[in-house]
Design a binder for these strands. Structure first.
Lengths: 216, 216
DNA sequence: TAGCGCTCTTCTGTATGCAATACTGCCGAC
DNA sequence: GTCGGCAGTATTGCATACAGAAGAGCGCTA
């Protein structure tokens, strides 16, 4: 037996397919085809699909299986503030002592972001690492779980955000300001900038609203 | 085919068993026995178990199946503020106009609570209805989903809370104050009392900490 | 020609089967 | 007496099989 259940791998793989559009928004998921394509049986595949439906990345339609929810600007408008508040909460619940040890590492990741941006790479992964590091000392595992489960939903809408290089540079600056605030022990400012970072990201989203409808 | 999948029913039934202790804290879940007991096959049962593991009400131990997480005072201390903040957030995101229509209905449910308390019944269900009603106008379905998924975790610790009749009466009073604040359009007070309501509930939890270790 | 119903196919939801791992109890060695 | 190894059982994780519902295509009727 594998020590990592198949359903976990599948969950990641299917998440990736939803995010990059290989599973198109609004489309139904064909379990037999997908299972064959992934080289597994329907059982662990369905287990993964159910997990994704619990997180909201898929919708379960009784008798009709699972389908990828269509893009909905309203949903994005609600997800960004939600993640913003959740992360701010996690930040406020982290001990200042723990936070004091983070800024250097955070800035190191921010340097990476600058480098990646310069060579036109994909910022998403580095950005994730930065936020993951920021919240890594939060003592509330349930809150972290909620954040981890919600972020993929947001990622569906994120692609076009990181497309705008101007906003990306601005965002990196905000990241550095958060680290600076933590250095000063100014948790309120850090949390405020964090929330603003997410909300601004949302503001940049509306412009090219149709880009992510045909990502492939 | 049933239009309501078996896994949904099973999820509720198993949740009930975890909450009332028929599935004891710390114990492993035997899929064959449980499936036989519930009169279903292992497939939909496992689907339900996976859903519960996603919500944190069970833990998946690779190769060893699922087990009911042991009670942990720290977990309770973190769950109550979490639900408090989530509900407060949902309240703040509900339009004041919508909220203005709620107080009468809320007080009606509070009356029920008083009645149930008087005859020594179970307040938990009525309390759920009250909170459900309070958040029913929140336009953020994802936030509501997170709340719905988190509350059962808290319910495991809640049994002894509602045991204290004194605190129960106090709690009902707080519920009425929230409704009153909504009537005045004072959202901040409503949210603040709501948070305090949850936090106080937690404070009353520590006393008889071992009651729920042997609920049967 | 448009709408309705029927049939056939496709697919989901559930049940069962199988292989490999994890646990239990016992025996032997130190 | 206790610890380590071993055999047998129990149990999980995955694969396959089956029944019934949803959907597609066609012909029939008006």
């Amino acid at each position: 037996m594998a020590r990592t259940p198949l359903r976990s791998d599948l969950l990641e793989q299917i998440t990736a397919r939803v995010l990059d559009g290989r599973l198109a928004a609004g489309a139904r998921v064909n379990e037999v085809h997908l299972a064959r394509e992934l080289g597994v049986s329907r059982t662990p595949l369905r287990e993964a699909l159910i997990g994704l439906a619990d997180r909201g990345l898929l919708v379960a339609a009784p008798g009709r299986g699972f389908l990828v929810p269509p893009f909905d600007p309203d949903e994005a408008r609600r997800l960004y503030p939600l993640v913003a508040e959740l992360e701010a909460l996690a930040l406020r619940w982290t001990s200042p002592l723990e936070l004091a040890g983070l800024p250097d590492a955070l800035d190191a990741v921010a340097d990476e972001m600058t480098a990646v941006l310069a060579r036109g790479g994909d910022l998403s992964e580095v950005d994730d690492r930065w936020h993951g590091l920021l919240l890594s000392r939060c003592p509330n595992p349930h809150l972290l779980r909620l954040i981890a489960q919600t972020k993929p939903l947001l990622k569906r809408y994120e692609s076009c955000y990181f497309g705008g290089a101007g906003r990306a540079g601005e965002s990196i600056g905000e990241h550095r300001r958060i680290a600076a605030a933590l250095r000063d022990g100014d948790l309120d400012t850090a949390a405020a900038v964090l929330v603003r970072n997410w909300v601004k990201a949302l503001a940049y989203l509306g412009k090219d609203d149709d880009d992510h409808r045909a990502p492939e």
